[in-house]
Each structure stands twice: as C-alpha cells, then as structure tokens.
C-alpha cells in the first residue's frame, strides 16, 4: 500500500468548545453503557489530539478525568441534576481514554476505556478527620446490613418483592457504630407479602429498578435499621446494549448478561422516577 504522507495530528486547547463537546459525548456514552455503580461527570480534560480521518471526519483522542455522582446508573435522573459525590463522602475519580469520531457535526465513540479509583484515605481525612471511608462491598457487616435492609423494605411493601441487583457503596461508621449501605434492587414477579422462597421469583420482563440507602445501627442487645428506597418507573422494553458487546465500556465488572441493564439515556422524561418509599 503506497505510504501516504504521514498523518499529522492537531493539538487544540483542552478547553476548546469542540474538545469539550467530544468529551461530553464520551461521558454520556460511558453513563449509558456502564452496568453498575454510579453515573460519572466530566471533571477535567487532560489531553486531546485530533487526527484527520480518511475519507472524511476527524477522530478526537481524549484523556479525561471524571468524578462519581450520587446517581446510580439505573437512576433515570438526568446527569445534569446529579450531585457530584463530595470529598467528605469519599469521592471516586474516573480516568478515561476515548477515541471519538466527529463526522457531519455528530460525535460517536469508537473506543472507551475507564478505570475508577477512590480518593486516598489521607485526602479524605485531610478535609474530614472523622469521616468514614469506603468499605469493601463483601465485608460481612456490609452484606448483613444489605440483607436486613432489603428484608425490612420487602416486609413493609404491598407490591412486588424486590431482589438485590448490586451493592454499590458501603461505609463502616465508627460512631455511632453502624454500617451505611447503598444498593440497587429490581422488582420480581412475586408479591412481597407472599414470598416464601425468593429463589423462585423472576425479574419482570419490563424491568423496574430501585435504589436504596440504609443504615444498620448496632445497639445493646440488637440492631436498628432505617432504609429508604426510590423505585423508578418500569423501563419500556428497549433494545438493551448487551454487556459483553465489543463496545461495552469497561468501568468495572460487567453486569451479568442474563440481566441486561437498560440504557436510560433514551427514556422520555415523562417516564422518570416515582417518589421514595420510606421504612
């Protein structure tokens, strides 16, 4: 193949409007292709190179930093309404590499690779010496707290039995001794008040997800649990991006292919959330 002239790349300003549009398109892509954890938001564009593409268009090669928000990826709340996780709650940063094609004024992601990492304990304690840190999600106290909280939620529900989708966040609080957890749930075809064997329950064809926050407080001779769950409107049967598809973004362990998680980006605004159920 005749070697054409060496392609030279252009290095625009990282805060150039076009660069920012490409970066925002890339972050939207991540948020609609990640199957667990929280939505991320653009924090800083580290590097950009723009390569001409034959016969037309150009490819933005981007390195960007993101920050975790408090919205779970299953939460249909628009990203612009999601709060950035503050430092005192033990922030989580994403480091992403993208290649984004710009053609006919449209941006489409060709490649995405992200890794997320929590802030260091030192940094958290610099701003808040007594703040709790993130705990391993398989810690026995965390697993127990989620189990007790979900049982309490289902016990007061007069609707579907909800099963656990994933534990997304946990902290072991020293004073008062307690465990704080956040987890995602999904409605099943069982009635909460009649379920004797949850293993026999199946997720609804029209997935209905929820997101719960709970605190299990140890006290003399027992424990107290407080749990709040927000149940979202059922997802219309949208074609789901299969987790093992080549373009699935790697921002953590891929969700179980048997339970594809919907891309919420294209739900009509009217379909969004119902009020929280509180226990």
């Amino acid at each position: 193949v005749p070697v054409g002239p060496a392609l030279a790349y252009n290095e625009p300003n990282c805060d150039d409007p076009e660069t920012e549009r490409a970066a925002l398109a890339a972050v939207d892509y991540i948020n609609s292709h990640v199957f667990r954890g929280y939505k991320h938001i653009l924090n800083q564009i580290d590097k950009v190179r723009v390569w001409p593409r034959r016969p037309m268009g150009e490819v933005f090669e981007l390195e960007i930093d993101t920050l975790e928000t408090t919205c779970h990826v299953l939460d249909p709340t628009p990203l612009v309404n999601c709060t950035v996780r503050p430092l005192v709650e033990h922030a989580v940063e994403g480091d992403c590499d993208f290649r984004v094609l710009k053609q006919d004024g449209q941006f489409s992601v060709l490649f995405a690779k992200c890794d997320s990492s929590p802030d260091s304990a030192e940094d958290v304690h610099k701003v808040c010496p007594d703040c709790p840190l993130l705990a391993p999600l398989n810690d026995t106290k965390v697993v127990h707290a989620v189990d007790v909280a979900l049982t309490a939620f289902n016990a007061q529900s007069n609707g579907s039995y909800f099963q656990l989708v994933e534990v997304s966040r946990a902290q072991l609080v020293p004073l008062p001794p307690s465990t704080y957890v956040e987890f995602a749930v999904a409605a099943t075809d069982c009635a909460a008040q009649e379920t004797t064997d949850p293993a026999k329950c199946n997720l609804l064809a029209e997935k209905q997800y929820g997101f719960c926050k709970a605190t299990l407080t140890e006290k003399f001779g027992g424990e107290d649990v407080a749990v709040t769950c927000t149940v979202f409107q059922p997802q219309s049967l949208l074609p789901q991006p299969q987790p093992d598809s080549p373009d699935a973004a790697a921002l953590g362990p891929v969700e179980d292919p048997a339970m594809p998680v919907p891309s919420l980006a294209d739900l009509p605004a009217a379909d969004l959330g119902v009020g929280p159920m509180v226990v």
């Binding site: 030279a8 790349y9 300003n13 564009i45 580290d46 930093d65 920050l67 802030d119």
Partner: peptide, 27 residues
C-alpha cells in the same frame, strides 16, 4: 512516524493548551 506539528513559538507566553480547567475538584 507521526510528524508532530512544531508549535511555532510566537512572541509572548505560549498558552498551555492542556490539561484543561478543573470543573469540580481534584481527587
């Protein structure tokens, strides 16, 4: 071999194009 375009050093300080601004805080 990619020919990296030479940044012609014009008069005055060259604006560092990257990294860009921090929108929230640095972890």
């Amino acid at each position: 071999k990619v020919v990296e375009p030479g940044i012609v050093g014009g008069p005055g300080p060259v604006v560092r194009p990257c990294p860009g601004r921090i929108r929230y805080f640095k972890v």
